[in-house]
Lab assay of single mutants.
Amino acid sequence: ENVVSAPMPGKVLRVLVRVGDRVRVGQGLLVLEAMKMENEIPSPRDGVVKRILVKEGEIDDTGQPLIELG
Rank of each mutant, 00 (worst) to 15 (best):
residue 17 V to D: 01
residue 38 E to V: 11
residue 40 E to A: 08
residue 39 N to H: 15
residue 37 M to Q: 12
residue 49 V to P: 03
residue 70 G to R: 12
residue 2 N to V: 14
residue 33 E to V: 12
residue 52 I to V: 10
residue 4 V to W: 03
residue 9 P to F: 09
residue 48 V to Y: 14
residue 66 L to K: 01
residue 10 G to P: 02
residue 7 P to F: 06
residue 21 D to V: 06
residue 32 L to C: 04
residue 29 L to F: 02
residue 29 L to A: 00
residue 39 N to E: 10
residue 22 R to K: 12
residue 7 P to E: 06
residue 68 E to H: 09
residue 15 V to A: 01
residue 37 M to P: 02
residue 38 E to I: 12
residue 60 D to A: 15
residue 32 L to Y: 15
residue 17 V to S: 00
residue 37 M to G: 12
residue 32 L to S: 01
residue 51 R to K: 12
residue 27 Q to A: 04
residue 9 P to D: 07
residue 45 R to N: 06
residue 61 D to V: 14
residue 30 L to M: 09
residue 8 M to F: 15
residue 20 G to L: 04
residue 56 E to Q: 10
residue 34 A to Y: 15
residue 46 D to E: 09
residue 68 E to Q: 08
residue 18 R to C: 11
residue 22 R to E: 10
residue 28 G to N: 08
residue 53 L to G: 02
residue 65 P to Q: 07
residue 5 S to D: 06
residue 23 V to Y: 02
residue 17 V to R: 00
residue 27 Q to N: 03
residue 65 P to G: 09
residue 52 I to G: 02
residue 70 G to P: 02
residue 53 L to N: 05
residue 13 L to H: 03
residue 50 K to W: 11
residue 11 K to N: 05
residue 1 E to T: 14
residue 41 I to P: 02
residue 55 K to I: 11
residue 53 L to V: 05
residue 36 K to Q: 13
residue 68 E to C: 11
residue 65 P to K: 06
residue 33 E to N: 04
residue 54 V to T: 10
residue 68 E to T: 09
residue 22 R to N: 10
residue 34 A to L: 11
residue 34 A to F: 15
residue 6 A to Y: 06
residue 9 P to R: 14
residue 5 S to P: 08
residue 8 M to G: 10
residue 1 E to R: 13
residue 58 E to L: 10
residue 46 D to Y: 08
residue 4 V to T: 03
residue 10 G to Q: 03
residue 53 L to H: 09
residue 26 G to C: 06
residue 49 V to Q: 00
residue 14 R to L: 07
residue 45 R to G: 05
residue 7 P to V: 07
residue 45 R to H: 09
residue 11 K to C: 08
residue 9 P to A: 13
residue 37 M to S: 10
residue 13 L to E: 03
residue 39 N to R: 14
residue 5 S to H: 14
residue 56 E to M: 09
residue 60 D to I: 15
residue 52 I to C: 04
residue 60 D to C: 15
residue 9 P to T: 11
residue 68 E to D: 05
residue 60 D to V: 15
residue 37 M to N: 09
residue 12 V to Y: 01
residue 6 A to Q: 04
residue 40 E to G: 04
residue 42 P to T: 14
residue 41 I to K: 01
residue 11 K to E: 03
residue 5 S to R: 15
residue 29 L to R: 00
residue 54 V to K: 05
residue 34 A to T: 13
residue 51 R to P: 03
residue 44 P to W: 04
residue 65 P to Y: 06
residue 63 G to H: 08
residue 13 L to N: 04
residue 59 I to G: 05
residue 30 L to P: 00
residue 21 D to C: 07
residue 51 R to H: 09
residue 11 K to L: 09
residue 46 D to H: 08
residue 67 I to Y: 02
residue 16 L to W: 01
residue 15 V to H: 02
residue 15 V to Y: 08
residue 16 L to S: 02
residue 7 P to R: 07
residue 54 V to R: 04
residue 49 V to L: 02
residue 2 N to M: 14
residue 49 V to C: 05
residue 70 G to C: 15
residue 24 R to F: 11
residue 58 E to F: 12
residue 51 R to N: 09
residue 30 L to V: 13
residue 60 D to G: 15
residue 56 E to K: 10
residue 6 A to R: 05
residue 49 V to G: 01
residue 69 L to D: 00
residue 44 P to N: 05
residue 29 L to S: 00
residue 69 L to P: 00
residue 55 K to R: 12
residue 21 D to F: 07
residue 3 V to N: 06
residue 7 P to M: 08
residue 61 D to T: 13
residue 32 L to I: 14
residue 24 R to Y: 11
residue 17 V to G: 00
residue 55 K to N: 10
residue 9 P to W: 10
residue 50 K to V: 14
residue 20 G to S: 04
residue 50 K to D: 06
residue 64 Q to P: 03
residue 60 D to P: 15
residue 35 M to S: 11
residue 16 L to G: 01
residue 63 G to N: 09
residue 13 L to K: 10
residue 29 L to N: 00
residue 24 R to L: 09
residue 16 L to C: 11
residue 8 M to D: 02
residue 2 N to T: 15
residue 2 N to Q: 10
residue 49 V to R: 01
residue 41 I to E: 01
residue 23 V to P: 00
residue 46 D to S: 09
residue 2 N to A: 11
residue 35 M to E: 13
residue 57 G to L: 06
residue 66 L to G: 01
residue 70 G to H: 13
residue 40 E to D: 06
residue 34 A to W: 15
residue 18 R to A: 11
residue 30 L to D: 00
residue 10 G to M: 05
residue 44 P to I: 05
residue 18 R to L: 08
residue 34 A to V: 14
residue 1 E to Y: 14
residue 3 V to F: 14
residue 47 G to T: 03
residue 62 T to G: 09
residue 13 L to W: 03
residue 5 S to L: 15
residue 58 E to N: 10
residue 53 L to S: 03
residue 16 L to A: 01
residue 49 V to M: 00
residue 16 L to N: 04
residue 31 V to L: 08
residue 61 D to Y: 15
residue 34 A to P: 01
residue 54 V to N: 01
residue 43 S to I: 02
residue 66 L to M: 11
residue 20 G to I: 03
residue 23 V to T: 02
residue 36 K to I: 06
residue 64 Q to V: 11
residue 29 L to V: 06
residue 25 V to T: 12
residue 12 V to C: 06
residue 11 K to W: 07
residue 44 P to S: 05
residue 50 K to I: 14
residue 22 R to C: 14
residue 4 V to G: 02
residue 44 P to H: 09
residue 28 G to C: 15
residue 32 L to F: 15
residue 24 R to M: 10
residue 23 V to R: 01
residue 64 Q to G: 09
residue 52 I to A: 02
residue 65 P to T: 07
residue 56 E to C: 10
residue 3 V to K: 06
residue 20 G to P: 01
residue 48 V to S: 04
residue 59 I to H: 11
residue 19 V to L: 07
residue 38 E to K: 10
residue 64 Q to R: 11
residue 31 V to G: 00
residue 45 R to E: 05
residue 7 P to N: 08
residue 34 A to C: 14
residue 51 R to T: 09
residue 44 P to E: 04
residue 45 R to V: 14
residue 40 E to I: 15
residue 29 L to C: 07
residue 1 E to P: 12
residue 6 A to F: 09
residue 39 N to P: 02
residue 39 N to K: 14
residue 51 R to W: 09
residue 57 G to F: 06
residue 8 M to W: 15
residue 5 S to I: 14
residue 42 P to S: 11
residue 61 D to A: 13
residue 18 R to M: 11
residue 46 D to Q: 06
residue 53 L to K: 03
residue 66 L to D: 00
residue 37 M to E: 11
residue 45 R to Y: 13
residue 67 I to Q: 01
residue 26 G to V: 03
residue 38 E to T: 10
residue 41 I to G: 01
residue 49 V to Y: 00
residue 60 D to R: 15
residue 7 P to K: 09
residue 1 E to C: 15
residue 30 L to Y: 05
residue 57 G to P: 04
residue 8 M to L: 09
residue 69 L to Q: 02
residue 36 K to V: 06
residue 67 I to K: 02
residue 21 D to L: 06
residue 27 Q to I: 05
residue 44 P to L: 05
residue 52 I to F: 02
residue 58 E to T: 10
residue 64 Q to E: 09
residue 67 I to V: 10
residue 23 V to I: 08
residue 64 Q to D: 13
residue 48 V to P: 01
residue 27 Q to T: 07
residue 38 E to F: 10
residue 1 E to D: 13
residue 35 M to L: 11
residue 19 V to M: 05
residue 54 V to S: 05
residue 26 G to H: 05
residue 12 V to T: 03
residue 31 V to Y: 04
residue 13 L to C: 07
residue 26 G to M: 04
residue 65 P to C: 07
residue 7 P to W: 07
residue 57 G to M: 06
residue 57 G to S: 06
residue 21 D to K: 03
residue 33 E to H: 08
residue 19 V to F: 04
residue 44 P to G: 04
residue 23 V to H: 02
residue 28 G to R: 07
residue 15 V to E: 01
residue 61 D to E: 13
residue 28 G to A: 14
residue 29 L to I: 07
residue 21 D to Y: 06
residue 58 E to C: 10
residue 28 G to E: 03
residue 12 V to D: 00
residue 33 E to A: 10
residue 14 R to I: 08
residue 54 V to P: 01
residue 49 V to E: 01
residue 14 R to A: 07
residue 47 G to W: 04
residue 12 V to Q: 00
residue 48 V to Q: 07
residue 64 Q to W: 12
residue 10 G to T: 04
residue 1 E to I: 14
residue 69 L to K: 01
residue 27 Q to W: 05
residue 36 K to A: 13
residue 68 E to L: 14
residue 24 R to K: 13
residue 16 L to R: 02
residue 10 G to F: 11
residue 33 E to K: 08
